[in-house]
């Protein structure tokens, strides 16, 4: 079955780019190019798991359209496709049509010029219900940017441990809030926690967990900082002016 074409010259990029599907895609594309439309749209909605063959198809289409003087745009690119194109430094080689599968409120064409929407900030009340909801939003964000299962679990754990440490040890009350800035770079996620509680340098806490000593002494607390250190790649601490803390966590990530 040939790739679907509608009146707007939209061609579906095959989810499974087998040799046969790729050949049909290219034949369909060449047929559309032969009509010399002003614009061709490649619908990438089916590309949730992007492989190199997909990129080859897109690049071939890009080249053919450019040589024919026809504008080509990608329609419905997934965050995963965006990220792959970004990593390959091909993002700016493509134009994008309005996206439909970005989260509500973020389907702004302006986003397209800066690629993947990759950061957010929020203030979180220092109480468990608010923290759990903030973590749920964080997990949604990680899902959205295509973080892998292990990375997502590690980041969720880091977030939980830092947020609960702030809640339990900073002296903040339930009416107080701390701020979280999340920034997903191509190869790392940067999480910054800013609170106005008691000063505490979490970055100097030890990474080592001596299980034998902990067991012999029946130690049940104090593993959170070690866990954060072990799961993160780097921690940076600075006092928040005269009161409070700014803790930045750097974590390499991959799909």
């Amino acid at each position: 079955m040939s790739p679907a074409i509608n009146q707007n010259r939209t061609i579906d990029v095959p989810a499974k780019p087998t040799a046969e599907a790729s050949k049909e895609f290219e034949q369909t594309l060449l047929a559309v190019i032969a009509d010399h439309p002003d614009l061709i749209l490649l619908d990438c909605a089916a590309l949730q798991r992007v492989i190199s063959s997909h990129i080859n198809l897109l690049w071939t289409a890009n080249t053919l359209c450019r040589e024919a003087g026809i504008e080509l745009r990608l329609l419905n690119p997934s965050p995963g496709l965006f990220r792959i194109l970004s990593i390959l430094d091909l993002l700016h080689a493509f134009s994008f049509n309005e996206m439909e599968n970005f989260p509500e409120g973020q389907s702004d064409k302006g986003i397209l010029s800066i690629s993947l929407p990759k950061s957010y900030s929020e203030e979180v009340s220092a109480e468990m219900d608010a923290i759990n909801k903030a973590i749920a939003r964080f997990v949604s964000f990680l899902t959205y940017i295509g973080a892998g299962t292990t990375t997502m679990h590690e980041l969720r754990t880091i977030y939980y441990e830092i947020a609960t440490n702030i809640r339990q040890h900073s002296g903040l009350t339930v009416s107080d809030k701390f701020r979280v800035d999340i920034n997903a770079d191509f190869d790392q996620i940067i999480m910054t926690f800013i609170d106005a509680g008691r000063t505490f340098n979490a970055a100097v806490a030890g990474k080592h967990v001596d299980a034998n000593i902990a067991a012999k002494t029946r130690k049940r607390r104090g593993f959170g900082l070690a866990m954060i250190h072990r799961l993160a790649n780097r921690l940076e601490y600075q006092p928040n002016n005269d009161k409070g803390n700014i803790l930045t966590v750097y974590k390499k990530w991959c799909k």
């Binding site: 902990a214 130690k219 104090g222 070690a226």
Partner: peptide
């Protein structure tokens, strides 16, 4: 969480 680890250890 670390509290869970602490419960076991």
């Amino acid at each position: 969480s670390s509290a869970g680890v602490g419960a076991i250890l």
